[in-house]
Design a protein around this nucleic acid. Structure first.
Lengths: 188, 188
DNA sequence: ACCTTAAAGCAAATTTGTTGCTTCAAGCGC
DNA sequence: GCGCTTGAAGCAACAAATTTGCTTTAAGGT
């Protein structure tokens, strides 16, 4: 969960947080990521700038909190029937979402305004959760499956590395290839 | 190469760039990463702030350029005699450097002030170069070796992912394990 | 040596970020 | 329910950073 926003969960604080987050999302689509400023967000949220400065520190930390919200998976991974299919489907969707322009922007924002690494950790935890669901299903079916750390190393790590450091040439085939490399190429 | 600095390589521009970069490095160790501001750097470099704003845009882009310089490997990978040893030694050193507090800071800076991803690309290119040297040596010895992309996926990607997204529990053993996973565990 | 032209300097104007103090309202004891 | 306690929000003055138009400097070419 976000850092500062969680104090005094109900009441005014919660309303302020909600309206500030909403203002960020609205303005992001109106003036673009570049046009955002703290005073602008504050005005839209009906709040004084010092409220934002005191609660979030600066624009980057605020954007980091918002980005984390938007990176949270909304649904459980699709169930295809076997480990390989589940993982492939998930990896392809993960890559597609993360490598899209908006996905990249959120990843950047999440990393940037994150002095203590907790938002980045959260981001990784989301992926780990999804993977865990897939692996647990496989185990329940009696399939042998790698552990979560292995999937992070062999699929998530390479994908995120390339998204961040090598903008080009990422597609579903790459995700597919990573999963194949992990599970072995013996086809069913 | 850096973005804007390369125009008019000789003369005043070059001197300004050099003194600004030097000022950043000096001040980083004097007031710390947090205490840096554009006006402060400008004063130390003997330059007006507007020069920095016009050439680099903002502090983050300047820090990104400086970070890239510091992430450039200074020496060729150590030669141990066989592929496995060369890769293990390189991976351990790479992890150690990148996972250190200063390494993490440089990676962050390099990524953050990098609108078009060229600095991040440079950073990846440095690793690819080093790996290529190691793999070429192995090929010259007649050893069979994976290709550079494979090493990026199996070693560099996971390491960078964990540095950025999962601050904890990174050590030489992890690097070793990644190389072993890549080359197979048959011991010589 | 003289043009041409990026880039640097300078200074005013604007915008953003900080801070002390006051006011508000959520949560708690009665 | 009623009134404390306290963290958070509002306000306003202040400080600092950023932007901008114009002038000046000096590289690089003729």
């Amino acid at each position: 969960m976000g850092r500062k926003p969680m104090v005094r969960p109900g009441g005014r604080s919660a309303r302020v947080q909600a309206s500030v987050h909403a203002a960020v999302r609205e303005l992001e689509s109106e003036v673009g990521r570049e046009g955002l400023t703290v005073p602008l967000v504050a005005a839209r949220a009906g709040v004084t700038p010092s409220t934002i400065y005191r609660r979030w520190g600066d624009l980057q930390e605020l954007l980091s909190d918002v980005a984390i919200e938007r990176l949270r998976p909304e649904t459980a991974p699709e169930e295809k029937g076997d480990l390989r299919s589940d993982l492939e489907a998930w990896a392809e969707q993960f890559l597609e979402e993360m490598a899209s322009p908006t996905g990249r922007a959120y990843i950047r924002d999440a990393l940037l305004g994150d002095p203590d690494g907790s938002n980045a950790g959260q981001c990784s935890a989301y992926a780990a959760e999804q993977i865990d669901v897939i692996l647990t299903r496989a185990a329940d079916r009696g399939e042998s499956a790698p552990d979560v750390e292995m999937v992070l190393d062999r699929v998530v790590g390479p994908v995120m590395y390339r998204i961040l450091f090598r903008p080009d040439g990422l597609d579903a085939a790459y995700a597919h290839q990573l999963v194949t490399g992990l599970l072995g190429s013996t086809d069913g």
